[in-house]
C-alpha cells in the first residue's frame, strides 16, 4: 500500500489516485516525419527499471491534479514529488514537495 504525498493535499492513501505510467514522454512534434520505429518507440516502448522510476499520478478523488513522482520500484519508497513540466530531480534526494502552482494550471506540454 502506497502513501502518496500529493503536492496540494498532502499524504493520502493510494486508492485516491490513478497511476499514469512513465513520466516525461513528450509526444513527438512531427509525427508525420517519424519512422515506424521511432513512432513505435514513442507509443509502446517504456523504461521499466528495477529502481528509481519517474511516473505520473493523478489525485482523482482529491484535487484531481496531475504530478510526477520518483519511486523506487523495488522498495516502493517515494524519493521525490514534483510538478508536471519540472525536470526530473536528482535521484536519491528525500521527498521535496513542490509549492502549489499559483496559476492553477498543470499544463506543460506533456501528454497526459
Amino acid at each position: 500500500m502506497l502513501l502518496i504525498p500529493c503536492p496540494w493535499c498532502g499524504p493520502r492513501d493510494e486508492i485516491e489516485f490513478g497511476c499514469g505510467g512513465e513520466a516525461h514522454i513528450a509526444r513527438p512534434e512531427n509525427p508525420d516525419e517519424l519512422s515506424d520505429e521511432a513512432w513505435a518507440d514513442y507509443l509502446f516502448n517504456r523504461a521499466n527499471p528495477k529502481g528509481p522510476f519517474a511516473e505520473r499520478w493523478v489525485h482523482s478523488h482529491g484535487c484531481r491534479r496531475w504530478f510526477n513522482v520518483v519511486r523506487d520500484t523495488a522498495t516502493n519508497e517515494i524519493l521525490a514529488v514534483y510538478e508536471m513540466g519540472a525536470p526530473r530531480p536528482e535521484i536519491g534526494s528525500p521527498p521535496v514537495l513542490a509549492s502549489p502552482d499559483e496559476s492553477g494550471t498543470t499544463s506543460d506540454g506533456e501528454s497526459l
Binding site: 505510467g21 518507440d41 516502448n45 517504456r46 523504461a47 521499466n48 527499471p49 528495477k50 520500484t73
Partner: peptide, 17 residues
C-alpha cells in the same frame, strides 16, 4: 525481469512489470 535483462543487452522493450 525482462526489461532488466533487455537493458543489459542494450535494447528497449514494450513491457511493464
Amino acid at each position: 525481469h525482462s526489461s532488466v535483462l533487455a537493458d543489459m543487452a542494450g535494447f528497449r522493450m514494450p513491457v511493464e512489470s
